[in-house]
Computed example of a mutant assay.
Amino acid sequence: MACPARELVTLYHERWALELSYDELKTDLLDRRESIRGKTPITVRRSSMSESAECDS
């Protein structure tokens, strides 16, 4: 499958924008030291719920 160079450059920049947004979500916006380790919405939810339960104890 051949792709024009311009299309590859555009896709590359779009991917980096997504990667930077994901990094911001994991670190800056959560205002916490540890990062999200889950790779699916379910594992992220479970992790945050267990950490929340630890804080309530």
Results as ranks from 00 to 15, higher is better:
23 D>N: 04
38 G>F: 06
19 E>V: 02
45 R>M: 11
13 H>W: 09
44 V>C: 10
14 E>R: 14
23 D>P: 00
1 M>E: 14
34 E>Q: 05
16 W>G: 04
36 I>M: 04
41 P>T: 13
10 T>P: 04
5 A>D: 15
36 I>N: 00
4 P>T: 08
6 R>V: 14
13 H>Q: 14
44 V>R: 13
51 E>W: 02
32 R>D: 10
21 S>V: 01
22 Y>E: 05
23 D>R: 00
13 H>K: 14
53 A>I: 07
38 G>H: 07
55 C>W: 03
47 S>Y: 00
20 L>D: 05
30 L>A: 03
9 V>E: 15
38 G>M: 08
40 T>V: 11
19 E>T: 02
33 R>Y: 06
41 P>H: 11
42 I>A: 02
13 H>L: 13
28 D>N: 11
55 C>K: 06
14 E>K: 13
35 S>I: 12
35 S>H: 10
14 E>M: 13
25 L>Y: 08
48 S>V: 12
44 V>S: 08
27 T>A: 07
57 S>V: 11
46 R>Q: 05
9 V>D: 14
49 M>C: 03
43 T>E: 08
1 M>T: 14
8 L>I: 12
46 R>I: 04
32 R>E: 14
5 A>E: 15
43 T>W: 01
52 S>N: 06
10 T>S: 14
55 C>R: 06
16 W>S: 09
56 D>H: 03
2 A>R: 15
27 T>S: 10
47 S>G: 01
3 C>A: 12
19 E>D: 05
12 Y>T: 14
48 S>Q: 12
57 S>L: 11
34 E>I: 04
44 V>G: 07
5 A>V: 15
